[in-house]
Design a protein around this nucleic acid. Structure first.
Lengths: 192, 192
DNA sequence: CTTTAAAACAAACAAGTGTTAGCTGCGCTG
DNA sequence: CAGCGCAGCTAACACTTGTTTGTTTTAAAG
């Protein structure tokens, strides 16, 4: 399979992910993006309707991956603690498989235009709720101690959503290793 | 003390903090900033050398506050665990005392121009190292379990640096309450 | 008052923004 | 081979960007 030959559209997409990540969506103009791809700016519009359309595709593709990975990971597990561990591993897994675009997902979504912006916020909220539900159930079942579940979910999420930073340093850790250590660190505080 | 009457410079500064936070540094033009202040764009240059100069002042002022609060908080404490708790409380305290500008500090520093950008990165690294040092010492003393201190510091830091989000929701929690709960959650995983 | 300096202004500059119109050449299908 | 359409191009539009110039207003000091 010749994965070496990229279509122009994929080329634009990948170059955009790299540049948006490195210098931010707002700082990258269509002309610079085109130059990096090796074409002229107007040619981009043969593949994407607008700059916003490009950002939208990047952000929503990753969003889908987060949902899919979560559902698949949680499906097999029964106990809240195991569910949460599996969800954390899945979440970090998606990030590590998409180092560039996941960083765009986390940091550049603010530049989405309506109605994509509202749609994105809604999706993200729903995803966060899936995590919070696990914690809520864990508390109700008595597996987790009684605590502010909103704050707990927030804390865990904040830590997870910064992990893309870990893949920048030279000493690249294994993904499962990261997931294991972070889970140990975060989940001890939950146990009843 | 008539704190109600603001100098134009302070007015620009505060308006900038609010707008940069709400819509991002890149999205706010000098004309819009000026309009919100109630002056014309060129008048801003009587108080700030450039747009970058304005961002620089906001970011570095908060940076100083983080350092000062850390040093003051840690000074009294002896045991690593108490040191860490105090540092966390201090860090969250600075954020809660500067809800607008701290969010700019965390999210908009990327738009700083050289040499401010490099200076900023260096400062932030030094600050993070102060946290990591506490953990390192705690491990050496045997108070903390043996773990990847870099990853542990990273996790704690990620959680702390997102707390500005907590002050956005309607049900505003008390700062000490937040610090207490987050500490409980994060530090259980460290104990030997 | 008069002088002086700070701070406001309108006008303009040079560069850059995303995007569109219209044209050209290439390769596939009939 | 003719015709179709995809995908590239140049040129340009309509703004917007941060900032500078030169001038006028404002307010405090002598």
């Amino acid at each position: 399979m010749g994965a070496t030959t990229l279509t122009t559209k994929d080329n634009i997409r990948q170059t955009a992910e790299k540049l948006f990540r490195e210098r931010g969506y707002a700082a990258i103009g269509m002309r610079e993006l085109a130059r990096e791809v090796g074409i002229e700016a107007p040619s981009i519009y043969n593949h994407y309707k607008s700059k916003d359309d490009l950002l939208r595709e990047i952000c929503f593709d990753i969003a889908e991956q987060f949902f899919a990975a979560f559902d698949k990971a949680v499906a097999g597990e029964d106990k809240p603690m195991k569910k949460l561990r599996a969800a954390i591993r899945a979440h970090i897994g998606v990030i590590s498989a998409n180092i560039y675009s996941s960083e765009v997902f986390f940091n550049e979504w603010v530049f989405l235009e309506e109605p994509n912006l509202s749609k994105f916020k809604k999706m993200r909220y729903e995803y966060e709720m899936k995590f919070r539900d696990i914690i809520d159930r864990g508390v109700k079942k008595g597996d987790f101690k009684k605590l502010n579940t909103k704050l707990a979910a927030f804390t865990i999420f904040s830590a997870l959503n910064a992990t893309y930073d870990l893949y920048k340093s030279s000493e690249r850790m294994n993904t499962d290793e990261i997931a294991e250590e972070i889970s140990n660190l975060l989940l001890k505080g939950l146990k009843a």
